[in-house]
Simulated scan of single mutants.
Amino acid sequence: MLLLFLVILIAASPAFAEPCSKPTARSKIAETLRLASEQRPVNLTFRTGADGVKLSIGLKTKYPDDMTIILQSDFEQLNVKDDRFDVLLRLRGSRERVTVPFHAIKSFWDTSELKCSDG
Rank of each mutant, 00 (worst) to 15 (best):
residue 102 F to I: 01
residue 113 E to G: 01
residue 21 S to T: 14
residue 49 G to W: 07
residue 24 T to Y: 06
residue 69 I to K: 11
residue 31 E to L: 08
residue 114 L to A: 00
residue 89 L to F: 14
residue 53 V to G: 04
residue 51 D to W: 03
residue 83 D to Q: 12
residue 20 C to H: 03
residue 61 T to F: 15
residue 82 D to A: 15
residue 105 I to V: 15
residue 63 Y to A: 08
residue 23 P to T: 07
residue 49 G to T: 12
residue 99 T to I: 15
residue 41 P to I: 00
residue 31 E to H: 08
residue 80 V to S: 07
residue 72 Q to S: 15
residue 30 A to K: 09
residue 81 K to Y: 14
residue 82 D to Q: 14
residue 97 R to K: 15
residue 31 E to V: 03
residue 30 A to R: 09
residue 86 D to F: 07
residue 22 K to H: 09
residue 82 D to Y: 12
residue 112 S to K: 12
residue 97 R to Q: 12
residue 54 K to C: 00
residue 42 V to E: 03
residue 91 L to H: 05
residue 42 V to G: 05
residue 48 T to K: 08
residue 80 V to M: 07
residue 80 V to D: 10
residue 91 L to S: 05
residue 112 S to H: 13
residue 112 S to N: 09
residue 36 A to F: 04
residue 28 K to Y: 10
residue 111 T to V: 02
residue 110 D to P: 04
residue 94 S to K: 13
residue 47 R to E: 11
residue 58 G to V: 14
residue 73 S to T: 15
residue 26 R to S: 05
residue 66 D to S: 11
residue 56 S to T: 15
residue 109 W to R: 11
residue 62 K to T: 11
residue 29 I to S: 00
residue 106 K to E: 12
residue 47 R to K: 13
residue 67 M to K: 12
residue 63 Y to R: 04
residue 70 I to N: 13
residue 25 A to E: 06
residue 68 T to N: 10
residue 29 I to K: 00
residue 88 L to T: 13
residue 100 V to Q: 07
residue 106 K to L: 13
residue 31 E to A: 12
residue 104 A to N: 00
residue 79 N to P: 01
residue 52 G to W: 08
residue 89 L to E: 02
residue 63 Y to V: 06
residue 32 T to P: 02
residue 81 K to A: 15
residue 47 R to G: 02
residue 97 R to V: 11
residue 85 F to K: 06
residue 94 S to N: 09
residue 42 V to H: 05
residue 28 K to C: 03
residue 48 T to C: 08
residue 27 S to F: 10
residue 90 R to V: 10
residue 25 A to V: 08
residue 77 Q to S: 14
residue 61 T to A: 12
residue 95 R to I: 06
residue 21 S to G: 08
residue 111 T to S: 01
residue 114 L to P: 00
residue 107 S to G: 06
residue 65 D to R: 14
residue 21 S to P: 00
residue 67 M to W: 15
residue 20 C to N: 02
residue 69 I to D: 05
residue 31 E to Q: 10
residue 21 S to I: 11
residue 85 F to I: 10
residue 97 R to E: 14
residue 99 T to F: 06
residue 34 R to G: 03
residue 25 A to I: 05
residue 54 K to F: 02
residue 107 S to Q: 13
residue 91 L to N: 03
residue 79 N to R: 12
residue 87 V to S: 09
residue 63 Y to D: 02
residue 87 V to T: 07
residue 109 W to Q: 10
residue 38 E to T: 11
residue 23 P to S: 06
residue 102 F to R: 01
residue 44 L to C: 07
residue 113 E to W: 01
residue 33 L to V: 07
residue 51 D to F: 08
residue 85 F to P: 13
residue 57 I to C: 00
residue 114 L to G: 03
residue 100 V to P: 03
residue 113 E to Y: 03
residue 68 T to W: 09
residue 99 T to R: 13
residue 31 E to P: 00
residue 71 L to H: 08
residue 91 L to W: 10
residue 28 K to Q: 11
residue 114 L to C: 00
residue 37 S to V: 06
residue 107 S to L: 01
residue 37 S to Y: 08
residue 43 N to G: 01
residue 30 A to I: 03
residue 65 D to I: 14
residue 47 R to P: 02
residue 97 R to P: 14
residue 50 A to Q: 06
residue 104 A to R: 05
residue 90 R to S: 07
residue 34 R to W: 01
residue 39 Q to H: 07
residue 70 I to R: 13
residue 20 C to A: 04
residue 105 I to S: 02
residue 63 Y to E: 04
residue 94 S to C: 01
residue 82 D to K: 14
